[in-house]
Amino acid sequence: MFHWLEKHPFFFAVGVFLVIAFAGLVEILPNFAQAAQPTVGTKPYTVLEMAGREVYIKNSCNACHSQLIRPFKAETDRYGHYSLSGEYAYDRPFLWGSKRTGPDLHRVGNYRTTDWHENHMKDPAAVVPGSIMPAYGWMFTNIADINTAYASQLTNAQFFSVPYNKPVPTKDGGTVTVAMANSVAEANKMALDEAKVITAGMKDKDVQDMVAAGKIPEIVALIAYLNSLK
């Protein structure tokens, strides 16, 4: 066997590769599989949150805001517990970002509220003196794309086994079930119900009127998404 291998350098090389690759696999795979499990308390995005995530991506929020808290005291003091890989289990794509022109947003739902986001997106400098973030006025009039958000949900559920309509564990030891619609019409209705809860905490009369008329502006979806980041 070894004589044969010594006479056939190509197969010898293949053998060496296999041995080293096997060592790599047993080192890396179990750890990776363990770290990729959803963290307790991580739940799939509802349809409105998913639409907000798309608004976030569309406006390139991730170009200036990261969603990854590093394990340094200075960061955890400011943003909360450092990020765990399992917390991104339902993020496709993940939005870690690589640059912080603005602050990290991975747990922004813990310390900012609906009405703050509303004021801030309208005029950032009005609530954060000296802020260089531009205003995002068009989000108050553009309509959120619920159909695409529902398509994302379906893709995640069917191809990546994201547990919609199934109980997922919560931090307090209970479970919570994130519902997903069975049809586009139902998804739009569910999004509208969620939007009504969000607009109850908003001041903008136009936004409230739009939601009452059955239309969901992008700002409502975005706030739903930001509030879900905890």
């Binding site: 003091d77 310390y111 509220t113 609906t114 009405d115 703050w116 905490g201 001041k203």
Partner: peptide, 10 residues
């Protein structure tokens, strides 16, 4: 009346 304030447990 004004809005919501989150808890600050940090």
């Amino acid at each position: 009346a004004i809005g919501a304030m989150p808890a600050f447990t940090n």
